[in-house]
């Protein structure tokens, strides 16, 4: 009779390497996260929890993020530049990923979009979906709310292998607010999301008022398959999260390696034009 007892005993069939891996994650003191939180006083907690918490979470969470120093520069491939690259400073956020030998390429299609973007919804699968046309006056489905240089929504897929050896996804010029990390178990993805803003003083010469622009970003990643999908733009964060939750993602069968990319940085910024 196959009963729960037999099944519990059959767990002896679990491979040694899986047991050792689980033990390693469980027993290593540096991976103790919330226990540490309780042991330290509140006064010490902020610094200590940040340090230990980040380490512990990083063990499982497939994205790491940091705010680079303002003077830190990143060399980004840029065909328009005579040298073929540009050095970019003022990076508001850099997100990095675990070294990944092979990434499975993906494509996606939205399962849900806000009403104003209904014209973008069809059954086609894409690796890049832009709502750019909604922000240019004169377009057939122009939406006046999106008339800035950013755009309402851009969805794009990336490969973790692209970012090996120090590569990163960079947020340029904008300042990132609080970054939230979650895992959506049902989708088998790690999720990172945040709002970013940039402030402009009034410019009477060009008749521009003081203003603050906001972009929001949601990053989905699957560490086993090595893919990353970024959903970003001017849409509010809750809406972008809803788009992300309903985004259908499938693998194309293509395998992407580090050598397949000429540049090992990519940008968050969902610019238009």
């Amino acid at each position: 009779m196959l009963d729960a007892y037999s099944l519990l005993r059959a767990m002896n069939g679990i491979r040694e390497e899986d047991i050792v891996m689980a033990d390693k994650h469980f027993d290593s003191p540096k991976h103790v996260r919330s226990r540490t939180k309780r042991m330290v006083t509140l006064a010490l907690a902020a610094a200590l929890i940040l340090a230990l918490g980040a380490g512990a979470w990083a063990l499982f969470f497939s994205m790491d993020h940091r705010v680079p120093e303002p003077e830190e520069s990143f060399r980004i491939h840029w065909e328009e530049s005579p040298s073929g690259y540009i050095e970019w400073k003022n990076v508001g956020l850099a997100v990095t990923f675990p070294e990944t030998e092979e990434s499975r390429a993906v494509e996606f299609r939205p399962g849900w979009l806000p009403e104003e973007m209904a014209s973008l919804q069809d059954d086609a699968w894409a690796s890049r979906l832009t709502a750019e046309r909604l922000c240019f006056e004169g377009g057939a489905d122009f939406v006046p709310a999106y008339d800035d240089m950013t755009q309402p929504m851009l969805i794009e897929s990336f490969a973790m292998s692209q970012f090996n050896q120090g590569g990163a996804l960079l947020l340029l010029d904008y300042t990132a607010g609080a970054v939230t990390e979650e895992t959506w178990v049902d989708r088998n993805v790690d999720v990172l999301y945040f709002s970013a803003s940039i402030h402009f003083d009034a410019n009477p010469e060009h008749d521009l008022p003081e203003r603050t622009l906001v972009q929001n970003y949601v990053l989905l990643s699957n560490p086993e398959a090595g893919w990353v999908v970024r959903i970003g733009g001017e849409l509010d964060l809750e809406t972008l999260l809803e788009v992300a939750r309903n985004l259908e993602i499938r693998e194309t069968g293509e395998i992407l390696r580090y050598e397949d990319f000429t540049d090992h940085f990519a940008l968050f910024n969902a610019g238009a034009g």
């Binding site: 519990l8 767990m11 002896n12 679990i14 899986d18 047991i19 891996m21 689980a22 994650h25 469980f26 499982f60 895992t183 560490p223 086993e224």
Partner: peptide, 12 residues
């Protein structure tokens, strides 16, 4: 990885 770790810890 995550599910495997949790499953092994719980049932092994």
């Amino acid at each position: 990885l995550r599910e495997r770790t949790v499953f092994v810890l719980r049932y092994w």
